[in-house]
């Protein structure tokens, strides 16, 4: 078992005919992920890397190849349109890797998501992986192994850090979700925590957050009230100065809200074990979860 992606996942790649998209999609396929189609408007009827049929529209990929999941590598000016197309085509789960989508475009996407049954992961995210079964996006496969810890994080390399720490200590992961560093995204920490809480294959949860917004506090409140599984967390940005955007568009402390201190306090109040440094994320969990 796992969340969102697994054995039944049939992936259509939007914008995977580009250089980065090709590289990562080939890696995903080599991992064993079931890609069934590519979509690049204007290239319909041709073949991608001698492996997949290319369609002009996502609707065609759904109709002809039964695609139910989409991964998006479309450049930022066109990425929101790509997401809207996938929603319109009835794709169940969209993973948008693209970094740099205007916030205004994402507010429209967010509205369309509310009116649909589609779930969006990202944008500006490393993707999602159910180790041993399915890897969609840009996460390196070798850092993971199948197991029982669910990992959710805004940051790519910090997710890798946590996954790798678990793996080298002999603990695998159920599913790892990179929700992305943008202020408007499809899936929140809270959404991911709910999925992990309901997933019988997930026994423990690692939540990695960062300064800005209040998503971590919302997840903490839910965990306090509903989650019996052990949860460990790390919050990046204790030393970040207020008012400066730390790389991720979402990582900014404005006024007194969104600071690392308030987030850590909320997490601790919810009974979550908070790692004092990024080197101790796995160890912090393994102190309260023996596997």
């Amino acid at each position: 078992m796992s969340v969102l992606v697994g054995k039944d996942t049939r992936v259509v790649g939007q914008g995977i005919t580009g250089k980065a998209g090709t590289l990562h999609a080939l890696n995903n396929i080599a991992y064993g992920t079931n890609y069934v189609a590519a979509v690049t408007p204007g290239k319909g009827g041709t073949t991608w890397e001698d492996k997949l049929p290319i369609f002009n529209t996502v609707h065609d990929a759904v109709e002809k190849e039964g695609a139910n999941t989409s991964v998006i590598f479309v450049p930022p000016p066109f990425a929101a349109d790509g997401i809207l197309e996938a929603i319109d085509a009835g794709i169940e789960t969209i993973i948008c890797i693209t970094e740099g989508i205007p916030v205004r475009d994402m507010t429209i996407v967010k509205d369309a998501l509310k009116k649909s049954k589609t779930r969006l992961i990202g944008p500006n995210c490393p993707g999602i992986m159910t180790p041993g079964i399915c890897n969609i996006g840009i996460m390196p496969g070798y850092i993971a192994q199948p197991g029982k810890v669910g990992v959710v994080s805004r940051s790519g390399t910090l997710t890798y850090e946590a996954m790798y720490q678990l793996t080298v200590r002999g603990h695998g992961q159920s599913t790892c979700i990179g929700i992305g560093g943008d202020p408007v995204n499809g899936t929140s920490h809270l959404d991911a925590v709910k999925l992990f809480n309901d997933d019988p294959a997930t026994e423990a949860i690692i939540l990695i957050g960062e300064i800005g917004g209040s998503a971590e506090e919302e997840a903490a409140a839910f965990i306090k009230a509903n989650v019996k599984k052990p949860v460990a967390a790390f919050i990046a940005g204790t030393t970040a100065p207020p008012g400066r955007r730390m790389g991720h568009a979402g990582a900014i402390v404005s006024g007194s809200s969104g600071s690392a201190e308030t987030k850590i306090a909320a997490l601790k109040d919810a009974g979550i074990a908070v790692a004092p440094t990024p080197s101790e994320i796995a160890d912090t969990l393994l102190e309260i979860y023996k596997g």
Partner: peptide, 13 residues
């Protein structure tokens, strides 16, 4: 990576 960069600053501190 932005998250790891922030975390690196934190661990130095």
């Amino acid at each position: 990576g932005a998250g790891l960069a922030m975390a690196t600053m934190d661990i130095i501190k």
